[in-house]
């Protein structure tokens, strides 16, 4: 069942305080954040480091709990969604298990869920992330970009209700990162899974998302919520359009208001 708004992800009035020695009330990391993600929507959470965007994502995944406020995924608690393997996650740490091959790493969610491994599904995903021929390779023999491809494939293997991405390409060089964003856009267009992406890269957010939620730091608050107007599928040329550059410039300014004063 869905929440009253029918949102796939509904964060309502979420506050998070972290305990700090000598400060009885703790440090306010997130201040009354409300955010809805509609089914099939790709939302990018954009903000400077330390604005609490990763904490929001971790709360959505059930890895952290709000001090006050509620988090619902398809109307349920994150724990309930995790228990039936409703999440697909890819974080900056690729978290590939070094003792498993590419194929077995992608098959891991099936095994954890106690479901029969669907080899056809795995082969299709390996083809989707363009790793055909590397099925039996171990993570240590792959490049950083290839490891993140495996990570994305593993996140998608159980056809999750919600895809949660936290700077999945953050550790990659600029050229590989741009290429991986092209790939992610292509993959996402084929699946249209409800996605929440955490990033501090403006270009990445603009190229991938349907909507960008800009956050400011200390404490983390939602500063802007703007739709991205570019039609899908987006060719790489979108990044050269004047409108793209205008939005990019204004978002960069929005991320550092104090530098602009």
């Amino acid at each position: 069942m869905s929440g009253p708004s029918g949102a796939a992800i509904a964060l309502h009035d979420v506050t998070r305080r972290f305990p700090l020695k000598g400060v009885p009330e703790g440090v306010l990391a997130l201040d009354r954040v409300t955010l809805d993600v509609q089914p099939g929507e790709f939302v990018a959470l954009l903000g400077p480091s330390g604005c609490g965007k990763s904490t929001l994502l971790r709360m959505t995944a059930g890895l952290d709990t709000p001090s006050t406020g509620t988090v619902r995924v398809g109307g349920e608690t994150p724990a309930a969604v995790a228990a039936r393997q409703g999440f697909g996650v890819a974080f900056q740490d690729h978290a590939l298990l070094p003792w498993l091959t590419v194929r077995d790493n992608i098959a891991l969610p099936f095994r954890v869920a106690g479901k029969p491994v669907n080899q056809g599904r795995i082969a299709a995903l390996i083809a989707l992330v363009k790793l055909t021929g590397f099925e039996e390779a171990f993570p240590r023999n792959l490049s950083g970009g290839m490891r993140q491809r495996v990570n994305i494939a593993r996140a998608l293997v159980l056809q999750p209700e919600v895809l949660l991405l936290d700077e999945p390409f953050g550790a990659l060089d600029a050229v590989t990162r741009r290429h991986m964003n092209l790939e992610l856009q292509r993959i996402w267009t084929e699946t249209r899974t409800t996605t929440l992406l955490v990033t501090h890269a403006v270009e990445e957010a603009l190229f991938l998302a349907d909507r960008i939620v800009v956050m400011t730091g200390r404490p983390g608050r939602v500063a802007q919520d703007l739709p991205v107007p570019f039609a899908r599928p987006r060719p790489v040329e979108v990044m050269r359009e004047e409108r793209f550059h205008e939005m990019q410039d204004s978002l960069v300014l929005a991320l550092e208001p104090e530098a602009h004063d």
């Binding site: 059930g62 890895l63 995790a82 393997q85 740490d93 978290a95 070094p98 969610p109 954890v112 869920a113």
Partner: peptide, 14 residues
């Protein structure tokens, strides 16, 4: 544990 793997298993409801 490999970095991030504990979180992964938790999110997968292991």
């Amino acid at each position: 544990l490999p970095p991030g793997s504990a979180d992964l298993f938790r999110v997968l409801g292991a």
